[in-house]
Amino acid sequence: MTTAPSHSAAVGQHIEPVVLQTDPVLLLRFGAATHNSHRIHYDHQYAGLEGLDAPVVMAQLHGTLFYRAAAVFAGGPRGVVSVGWRNRAPAYVGCELVVTGVVREIADGLVTLDLEERCGDGAPCAVGEAVVIGNAEPVC
Rank of each mutant, 00 (worst) to 15 (best):
M1R: 01
M1E: 03
T3C: 07
A4N: 02
P5Q: 07
S6A: 14
H7A: 09
A10K: 14
G12K: 06
G12A: 08
G12Y: 05
I15K: 01
I15S: 01
E16M: 11
P17F: 13
V18W: 05
L20R: 15
D23A: 12
D23C: 10
P24A: 13
V25S: 12
A32H: 06
T34E: 02
N36P: 01
N36W: 05
H38K: 04
R39T: 07
R39G: 08
I40M: 12
H41E: 00
D43L: 00
Q45E: 15
A47Q: 07
L49Y: 12
E50L: 03
A54W: 13
A54G: 10
P55R: 06
P55F: 04
V56A: 11
V57Q: 05
H62D: 13
T64D: 06
V72K: 14
V72T: 14
A74K: 00
G76H: 11
P77M: 11
G79D: 00
V80L: 00
V83D: 01
V83Y: 04
G84P: 02
G84L: 03
W85G: 03
R88A: 08
R88M: 10
P90H: 07
P90E: 06
P90A: 07
P90Q: 09
Y92A: 09
V93H: 09
V93L: 04
C95E: 15
E96S: 13
L97N: 04
V99P: 07
G101Y: 05
V103C: 05
E105Q: 14
A107I: 13
D108Q: 15
V111Q: 00
L115H: 05
E116K: 15
E117S: 13
R118Y: 06
D121M: 09
D121R: 05
D121H: 10
G122H: 08
A123R: 15
V127A: 11
E129N: 15
E129K: 13
V132W: 10
G134M: 01
A136H: 03
A136Y: 01
E137T: 10
C140F: 00
